[in-house]
């Protein structure tokens, strides 16, 4: 579990999961289009994960596999993990996967870890070799975590190149460069 105040941890739980209600619930209006003020038994809905987890613990609902881990995505990842656009599916693919797996399908854990292993190499190659201009295309595929990895690698490589090329050895403190204000 991450830090309680970790914004990424919070955002990862915002994603919706399909759920099915085991009980009829009164006084709840999940879907705006439904006019009745209660939810029938066995009705289906989409809830954010943080809410679904709470209800699941009270055994009010069961959680189904979210759309971003469906069969199509699995097949695509098995075919060529590197070129799957995970960001549009779920920008917290890995974190979300880890969170959801225990509640619906344990094999999501395997999928997530397989996908990360396969995509990690792509990120590695591109981060250390490609120039910034070419980077924008890959960046659109990457999830949040991969983007962080990519930027970490890029920035340390760029810092090294800058150091090797030299440049000003001494940096002037910003306060020294200022002109003195004319005395009044």
């Amino acid at each position: 579990m991450g830090d309680y105040y970790d914004i990424d941890d919070i955002l990862a739980e915002e994603d919706f999961v399909p759920v099915q209600f085991h009980k009829a619930v009164n006084g709840v209006k999940i879907d705006e289009s439904s006019e009745r003020g209660f939810v029938e038994q066995d009705s289906k809905a989409e809830l954010p994960f943080w809410l679904a987890r709470g209800l699941h613990l009270q055994q009010a609902i069961s959680i189904k596999v979210p759309a971003c881990f469906n069969r199509n995505t699995r097949l695509e990842i098995e075919a060529d993990a590197g070129s799957v656009d995970l960001r549009s599916r779920c920008s917290y693919f890995y974190e979300f996967g880890c969170k959801v797996a225990p509640y619906c399908d344990k094999s999501i854990g395997l999928l997530v870890s397989y996908a990360f292993k396969a995509r990690y190499k792509e990120v590695l190659y591109k981060a250390h070799t490609k120039a910034f201009a070419a980077a924008s295309k890959i960046m659109t595929f990457l999830t949040k975590e991969e983007t962080n990895l990519y930027e970490a690698a890029q920035s340390s490589m760029a810092a090294f190149r800058k150091w090797r090329m030299g440049g000003p050895r001494l940096q002037r403190a910003s306060i020294l460069g200022r002109k003195r204000k004319p005395a009044e």
Binding site: F116, K117, L149, A153, F160
Partner: peptide, 16 residues
């Protein structure tokens, strides 16, 4: 050079 990258990658691997 690889400190930031590999540190994060290892953490992610470990978690998965």
């Amino acid at each position: 050079i690889i400190r930031a990258f590999s540190g994060r990658a290892l953490q992610a691997f470990y978690r998965h």
